[in-house]
Computed example of a mutant assay.
Amino acid sequence: MSTTRINRFVAKAGQAEALKAFLSQLIPYITASTGCEGCELFQQENQKTEFYIVEKWHSKADHQASIAGFPKEKMQAAMDLLAEAPQGNYYQLC
């Protein structure tokens, strides 16, 4: 059964464009990962510092394998752009 992962990111003041650029660069990596069925980046209309990545996966295990393969130093560098820790959860279609 497929699963959806919804991730929330909030940029520090003055860092929204830099965070958007970083997150945009993640999309090709995610979509090329085994088991990815789709991935989209959204920016909140009224709060330009808030972003969501919505990912569709064949399985939760495929998503977790994708995360394990992403270079940790790239993600660590992006942490300086964030106002708070990223949040994410898995969802099933009802």
Rank of each mutant, 00 (worst) to 15 (best):
M1C: 06
S2W: 02
T3E: 06
T4G: 07
I6R: 00
N7Y: 08
N7E: 06
R8D: 00
R8W: 05
V10Q: 12
V10F: 07
K12V: 10
A13H: 05
A16R: 08
E17I: 14
E17Y: 01
A18V: 06
L19W: 02
L19V: 12
K20V: 06
K20L: 03
A21H: 12
F22G: 05
F22Y: 15
L23H: 02
L23E: 01
L26V: 07
L26F: 09
P28F: 01
P28K: 06
Y29C: 01
Y29P: 00
I30Y: 00
I30C: 00
I30T: 07
T31V: 14
T31W: 07
A32L: 07
A32R: 08
S33E: 02
E37N: 12
E37D: 09
G38P: 09
C39M: 06
C39L: 00
Q43R: 10
Q44N: 08
N46M: 03
N46Y: 04
Q47L: 12
Q47C: 10
Q47A: 15
T49Y: 08
T49N: 13
E50S: 09
Y52Q: 10
Y52V: 14
V54K: 08
K56N: 10
K56V: 03
K56P: 00
K56D: 04
S59Q: 00
S59D: 04
A61S: 07
D62M: 11
D62S: 07
Q64V: 08
Q64K: 14
Q64I: 10
Q64P: 13
A65F: 06
S66D: 01
S66Q: 04
I67Y: 07
A68F: 07
A68N: 09
G69M: 13
P71K: 00
K72V: 14
K72D: 10
E73P: 08
E73H: 14
Q76A: 14
A77W: 03
A78Q: 05
D80M: 04
L81C: 00
L82D: 00
E84P: 08
A85M: 11
P86E: 02
P86I: 01
Q87G: 10
Q87C: 08
G88H: 01
Y90L: 09
Y90N: 06
Y91N: 05
Y91P: 03
Q92N: 15
Q92H: 06
Q92D: 11
C94A: 13
